[in-house]
């Protein structure tokens, strides 16, 4: 899976997972995940949805340091290799 493919798929997963109405046109790679409407609870669902969509396993604690959409793409890219 290429990096742009991961980015596109992640975008879809996030769209379906987030509960807040968002203008996705304005969401960029540098957008901070915490500012996209995910809180401490809904981030648990996002982690789950990402795991299911990409068929990988990781602990939520491993995401320490992941702040932006781009950080998450990099994390997934490393995991998927």
């Amino acid at each position: 899976m290429t990096r742009p493919e991961i980015g596109e798929k992640l975008r879809q997963v996030m769209k379906e997972s987030v509960r807040k109405e968002l203008d996705w046109q304005n969401v960029t790679e540098n957008s901070r995940i915490a500012e996209l409407g995910f809180d401490s609870l809904s981030i648990l669902d996002l982690v789950y949805d990402v795991q299911q969509a990409f068929a990988i396993d990781f602990d939520a604690e491993e995401l320490v340091g992941v702040r932006t959409v781009d950080d998450l793409v990099s994390f997934l890219e490393a995991r998927l290799q």
């Binding site: 609870l41 648990l44 669902d45 982690v47 789950y48 299911q52 396993d57 939520a60």
Partner: peptide, 10 residues
């Protein structure tokens, strides 16, 4: 276990 949602309770 991988299929269990962390938010299953709520």
């Amino acid at each position: 276990d991988r299929g269990m949602r962390p938010t299953s309770i709520i």
